[in-house]
Amino acid sequence: MKFPFAELVHLDNLWFQVTGTLCNLSCTHCFNRSGPQARSFGFLTLAQVQEELETAVRAGVKEIFFTGGEPFLHPQLPEMLELSLAVAPTTVLTNGMLISNRLADRMAEMERKARYSLEIRVSLDGWTEASNDALRGRGVFKQVLAAIERLCQRGLLPLVTVVRTWDEGEDQAALEGFGSVLKAAGYARPRIKLLPALPLGRELERSPQAGAESSLLSEEMLEGFDRDLLMCSNSRLVTDRGVWVCPLLVEIPAARLGARLQDAAPTYELKHPACMSCYHYGTICGNVSALIEGPAELKRP
């Protein structure tokens, strides 16, 4: 089968997998199998981050993202965020477990001083303790809500990131459920980002039908499709093992494009089932909510 290629049109978004796959949680739906023993990717150094930031700024980068694993396991993450915020808007994706009062103070201070936005994306996958902790681990619900409260008390508005583990028809009820639990935790105007579950990593074991139902992209499907919605046309991921086409495909060796940003290959063959998530929902890894209703069909009213 012949698959379509995507070209990097412009490096809008640079991602750092700053702690590799090391995480203090091991969620049952984790797309890159992060966990306390997951060592398939390691830590980036401050010098590596600085060097790739400089390359990206020369290329006209728009936004920077820090992910993992759990980024706050890196002792130098705050310094990295400061470096990044000095040149571009910056987002960190966290499970929230390590956000102490001291760290929340530092993030609030950093945000106040920066002229760009600092987005803190905190994961929460159920609006009840039972449903969240079944996916993310015992005790996580309470700790994460406490972390969200700490951020809110300091004027930060975290983007609560939720993976859909229910039927699409229940989205509205779910959003209302999350909204009320966040308000009760002191988040007066909760920002919620809903994501589809991805047919990758541990999610394939938790939900085997996700893999079985997945399909692949073809050249015909991309005819007339807005390729700006494909993350690989505007993003790259830096890891300690090289540059990957996107954060989702880190387990795919063919998705490694080179050692460093400046010599990474500019094109990628879209031959993985996970490529369908950008096709269906738009660039889901970005900060605005995914197109959870699917792409709008344009018809005459």
Binding site: A59, G60, K62
Partner: peptide, 19 residues
């Protein structure tokens, strides 16, 4: 792009120079 949002806090200098 016709409908790209260029907000002050998410448009880096580097990106605006590129545009």
């Amino acid at each position: 792009k016709l409908n790209e949002f260029l907000w002050e806090s998410t448009s880096s200098d580097a990106f605006l120079e590129y545009l």
